[in-house]
């Protein structure tokens, strides 16, 4: 039976991620850990994360998770979620500017004060709630998920990809941003599949069945 490592660096709701993977799966072993050997031994790896990027990056580096992630993305199906997606980018504007892992080109930017929609109505930040995810590339992780399906978001910073071909989906909250990215065996989502009911569980199921090829 295959196994999935959920990387635990002390930031975030790992209970929900692990339980959703378990629920979506069919008996895969779910391991919540920051132990490099265990992560490297798993068949698939999830990097979750919530909270401020400074603290997340600090813990990622302190625990050596950065080196493990660099190794993992060479070979295994890898899924970054929320701050776990932002951490893959070059840098983030949050906390006065924080260098991230620089595995995918692009920046993490603030939605800004006085954010407005196309009608000029004020929009709230954090972007919190169910918004439409517009798939812009075909990918095994979208299997069984409708175009423009709603997923649950909660974030004040968004990913601006510098590589068009990396974008798997977009979403709009005042600005159009990258809701999901993909490159080789990396997939990353700004939304929370573990909190997005049926569609989220379907995405996790797809990840558990994914061999890492686009």
């Amino acid at each position: 039976m295959s196994s999935v490592a959920v990387i635990d660096y002390g930031m975030g709701n790992l209970h929900s991620v692990a339980k959703a993977l378990e629920h979506a799966g069919s008996g895969e072993t779910i391991i919540v850990t920051h132990d490099a050997a265990k992560i490297l031994a798993a068949d698939r790896v999830v990097l979750p994360g919530v909270g401020a990027i400074r603290d997340c990056m600090h813990e990622i580096r302190r625990l050596g998770v950065d080196e493990v992630v660099r190794e993992v993305i060479k070979t295994k199906p890898f899924l970054g979620v929320c701050v776990g997606m932002q951490a893959l980018m070059g840098e983030s504007e949050e906390n006065g500017g924080i260098a991230c892992l620089d595995l995918l080109p692009g920046k993490v930017r603030f939605f800004g004060d006085n954010l407005k929609n196309s009608n000029g109505d004020a929009l709230k930040v954090p972007h919190m709630g169910w918004n439409q995810v517009h798939q812009v590339s075909e990918h095994p992780l979208w299997q069984g998920i409708e175009q423009d399906e709603r997923f649950y978001f909660v974030h004040s910073y968004y990913v601006e990809s510098a590589q068009q071909s990396d974008i798997a989906a977009t979403c709009t909250h005042g600005v159009e941003f990258s809701a999901a990215l993909h490159r080789d065996n990396i997939f990353a989502a700004q939304f929370h599949p573990e909190k997005s009911q049926h569609a989220g569980l379907q995405l996790y199921r797809n990840f558990l069945n994914w061999n890492g090829e686009s």
Partner: peptide, 8 residues
């Protein structure tokens, strides 16, 4: 289109 109003 945008974020949905939530019922809790």
């Amino acid at each position: 289109m945008g974020v949905a109003k939530r019922i809790i």
